[in-house]
Structure formats: C-alpha cells, structure tokens
Nucleic acid binder design. Structure first.
Lengths: 189, 189
DNA sequence: GTCTATAGGTGGATAGAC
DNA sequence: GTCTATCCACCTATAGAC
C-alpha cells in the first residue's frame, strides 16, 4: 500500500483540525473535503463524531506513552529527559498548533463523556511521568529542587500547554524556549 | 435602576459562556434564554456575533488595565505586585473557568479579525506589565533573577493561562498555587 | 467503501409589526 | 426594545443504491 488508508487519513485530518480550530469548529464536511470523499463515507469509518474524537485521542495518548518509554530507555538523567519532553511541545509550537489534549481540554464542557475521559488520562499520564522523573533525579543524582516534584510537574504541564495557547496569539515568540529556560533553572538552582 | 440593563446582562452572559464553553460553542439562543428575551432582541443590542465578541473583549481588556493600575498605585514591591496579578487567575480557577482571553486565543483561527486583534492586545498588555514590574524590582529592590525579565514574563503569562486550561481537566488541583510557588522561587532565588 | 438523497436540527441574521 | 415569522446555510446522521 503506497497510500495511507482512509481511516488513518481521517484520523490525521481530524487531529490537525482539532489542534488548529478546536473540536466545535470542525465538521464532517471539512474532513470529507480534505480526504476527497463524501460525509456519508466518513460516517462509515467513524459512525459519530464522538467515536472519531475517542479514536483520535486514544491514538494520541498511545503515542505519548511510546514517546515517554523511548525517552526512558534512550536517555539518562533528569534534565536531559525533561528537555526531550519539552521538545515534543516545541515541535507543536513551531507548527503553530495546540497540543491535541490541550485543545480538547478547552472544549471539555462540550465533549462527549468518553472523549473527556481520554483527555483526563492524558494529563494525568504526563504529570505523573514528570513527577517520577524529577523524583528519580533527586534520589539518584542528588538533585535539589526549591519546590515539590508534584508542584513542578503540575507547573510544567500547565506552562507548556499555556505556551502553545499563548504563542499563537502573542506575536509568535518562542514561548516554549522561555519556559524551558525558566523551568530548568528552577530545577537545578 | 435596581436591575442591570439588558446590554450588560448580555455581555456578562456571553463572557461566562465563552469562558466555559468557548466562542464556537455558544449561540445567540443561549444568550436569549439566559437573559429571558428572544434572539432577535439580542441582535438589536449586538447586530452580529463579531460585534458582541469585540465588545466583551474590549470590556475585559479595560478591566485588566484598571486592575493593573490599581495594583501599581496601591502596592509597592515586585513580589507583592505579582502576587496580586496571580490572584486574578486564582479567582478564575476557583470558578473553574478559563481566562476570557485564553479561551479566545484557543479559537483564534476561527475568530473575526477585530476580535483577534483584541486578544493580541490583551496578551501584550499583560506581558509588558509583568516585564516592567520585574525590571523595576531589579532596579529599585536589587532583585536578582536567573532569567531575563522578558523570559519570565512570557513564561508567567503562559503558565497561568495553561493552569486554567489544565486544572479543569486534571482532577481539580490548585495549579495556580503551584505556578505561584515555583515562579516566585525563581524570581527571588 | 463510496455514493446520492434526505431527514431533522440548529446556527446567525433580517423584516416588519407592536 | 421586544416580538413573530422567516430565510438560508450548515450541522450530524441515516437509508438504500451501486
């Protein structure tokens, strides 16, 4: 198969549209036009918008899990690991998009329950991993932090999501870079 | 007048709806029901949704300017001032809402141009004020910071916006508190 | 798997009476 | 200022042919 199958194309397109326009501002018609089929065919692959939302978020969450595992096996040291984590967000920022999860968090009150659950899981997985990574740094590298690991993990997740949110509005600065500089100073200072 | 006039009620309701559901997920019908009139009457006060969006953001931006001026006249010292600034976001977090500007930043690509301009102005005004406040602390209080004032200002704005975004999804933690602790340590450390 | 056709609902917006 | 009535565009979703 040289070309990607239709279901994957739909997932890709839906993800991009949610990240750039938000869950409530994209339609099955947008998807259909982008992929070159009709809306009825989209419903064949994903019966409802909720089904599609869950599928996109589930895939995104699996990708996060894979990324974190890859970092843990390929990299040693708290700071290098966190730098690689932050890199994920830098990529998004350079594309001018939100994190999929951050975008859906914004629309939380309007989401189907199943999608909302996926969003919560993603946030928790990110926060737990950062917290664990910092705790390991304290135990194994003698790292000293001025705040609790859980405070720092919560702050980092929020800061990175906020960076992607704000950098689209604020003149295109490199906000993720700034967060990285400030955060890593806090960590090692 | 014991009761608030209709236009103000509409502004209040629109602001709340945007903060909780987002720009693309609220309708003139939602407003009409909340205020107890019909949609045609809403159009009398605000001919188009873009007009209403601009009006809400302009008022919000004026309130920010007033808050910052009040802080500057009533409070001295970099850290106390920043604490009061952060308090604005803590209030929003306790209500479970986004900052109006942060919510609209998420919907930026789908907004009318005039609304988008208001969002940009709000972000810039916030960032400039923080930057100025930190610079004043350095000059007048001998404050030493480990990062540049502009880095720290950009980070703080992003972190606070992100906190409001994430705290709704992440089990209701006090993320603004965490940001405050981490940030002020960076500032004075 | 994809299509045409269509249903049923909701969106923003306008005209004109009161 | 508020109403009723209405327009048209778009939305999600389904039925049934190919």
């Amino acid at each position: 198969m040289s070309t990607t199958d239709t279901a994957t194309q739909l997932l890709d397109t839906a993800q991009t549209l949610i990240q750039t326009r938000g869950y409530n501002a994209y339609s099955y018609n947008d998807l259909a036009e982008a992929v070159g089929i009709k809306t009825a065919s989209v419903h064949y692959h994903f019966p409802s918008k909720a089904d599609l939302g869950v599928a996109v978020m589930a895939r995104y969450r699996a990708q996060l899990a894979a990324s974190l595992e890859r970092i843990d096996t390929a990299t040693t040291g708290c700071e290098p690991k966190l730098r690689q984590f932050i890199d994920i967000y830098r990529t998004a920022e350079s594309c001018g998009t939100m994190c999929l999860c951050g975008s859906l968090a914004h629309d939380l009150d309007t989401l189907p329950d199943e999608v909302r659950a996926e969003v919560n899981s993603y946030i928790e997985a990110s926060t737990r991993w950062i917290c664990r990574t910092i705790e390991a740094g304290i135990e194994q590298e003698g790292l000293t932090t001025s705040c609790s690991p859980s405070d720092m993990a919560a702050t980092l997740v929020g800061s990175l999501q906020g960076s992607l949110l704000v950098s689209r509005a604020g003149g295109g600065g490199h906000l993720v870079d700034a967060v990285e500089r400030v955060f890593l100073v806090t960590l090692t200072g």
